[in-house]
Design a protein around this nucleic acid. Structure first.
Length: 320
DNA sequence: GCTTGCAAGGCTGGCCTATG
DNA sequence: CATAGGCCAGCCTTGCAAGC
């Protein structure tokens, strides 16, 4: 049972225009497929990193390396520019120098005298986490210990314990939305969005075969949510808590739409995220495949102030 | 004067436990 | 029983400096 399924009832509290949401997704997918507008350049910032990690794993005859590295890296994909972040860490020489931090036994054993000092400094040097994402470092250490002690330093053992089932992997990582660390007996720092993102990448780049990969749904964030709101697929009459929209309304809706229309969650995720982040951030409305359905641009500010999506806040853009 | 690159920066709701 | 307080996933924008 996916943790989100029980939340479907929240949908009924908001007037979802599923037909319109379907149209938005179809246009977004068409834009992605055509590779035009802001889909003309690379819209998969994680791809070059995964490629050099795969290469390093092959060179060093370490089958677990790429998966371990991706698992340990994904929690940093938060509160910062994803493209910037992957550009920073995608450097073969840099990865070569710091690859040991992804090898749990080496990283932990070689730094036993001062694990927090040596390992923490190496992580800072490698990831160079900006701003809020520094917070991820503490839990990063915790996850490395869990990987070492409970899963013999190989994330594939964690997958096997989840019966190689993508849905069980997500449930095991999330436990429940907003779970406390003390509730999480295993890995931390993976919530509903990041857990789905990780599984999506594992499947997309064929790093490991997980069954039911198509069943976990779409990793929903601010960018994706605002595309649906701006296009009136979710018409709001008053400010609504962003968390309610992203996790209680959109997550189940995307799963339904994908199942009903045969959309691939990964493609929906990529297409909408690119539109929301690249398109809206850079105000390239002329390049946007859903421009004809969109009538405003929701500002980021209300989210920071009250955690709300405000339908009256049209930010820096309103269609004439 | 422009673009590009970089780094720094808090707040929320909902759940839980502890306290009176 | 009420309420106070702790906890935590999740979330890019902005201002400055350097390079053209």
């Amino acid at each position: 049972m996916l943790e989100s399924a029980a939340l479907g009832i929240e949908q009924q509290r908001y007037q979802i225009d599923k037909d319109r949401a379907k149209s938005v997704i179809e246009k977004a997918l068409a834009g992605r497929e055509a590779r035009t507008g802001f889909f003309a350049t690379n819209f998969q910032p994680e791809k070059p990193f995964i490629e050099i990690a795969q290469k390093y794993g092959i060179q060093t005859n370490n089958e677990a390396f790429c998966l371990n590295a991706l698992f340990m890296t994904t929690p940093f994909v938060i509160a910062q520019n994803t493209g910037q972040f992957f550009n920073r860490i995608t450097d073969a020489k840099l990865l070569n120098d710091y690859a040991w931090i992804f090898d749990p036994s080496t990283a932990i054993n070689e730094t036993t005298s001062d694990p927090n000092g040596v390992l923490r400094k190496a992580c800072l040097d490698y990831f160079r986490p900006a701003g809020y994402s520094v917070n991820a470092l503490g839990q990063w250490m915790h996850n490395l210990s869990v990987l070492n002690e409970k899963h013999q330093g190989d994330i594939r053992n964690f997958f096997r314990e989840c019966e190689d089932d993508a849905v069980k992997v997500v449930d095991a990582l999330v436990v429940r939305p907003r779970a406390k660390s003390s509730e999480k007996t295993g890995f931390r720092r993976y919530g509903p969005k990041l857990a789905r993102l990780f599984v999506q990448w594992v499947n997309q780049y064929e790093l490991y075969v997980l069954k039911n990969s198509g069943e976990v749904g779409v990793p929903v964030d601010f960018q994706i949510a605002r595309v649906l709101i701006q296009t009136d697929a979710i018409p709001l009459s008053e400010p609504v808590q962003a968390h309610t929209i992203t996790h209680k309304v959109l997550l189940p809706m995307f799963t339904e739409l994908c199942n009903e229309n045969g959309f691939k969650p990964q493609e929906v995720s990529e297409a909408l995220w690119t539109i929301g982040s690249v398109g809206c951030s850079n105000r390239r409305h002329e390049d946007c495949p859903v421009a004809s359905l969109c009538n405003r641009m929701i500002s980021r500010n209300p989210y920071d102030r009250g955690g709300m999506f405000d339908p009256t806040d049209v930010g820096r853009f309103k269609k004439q």
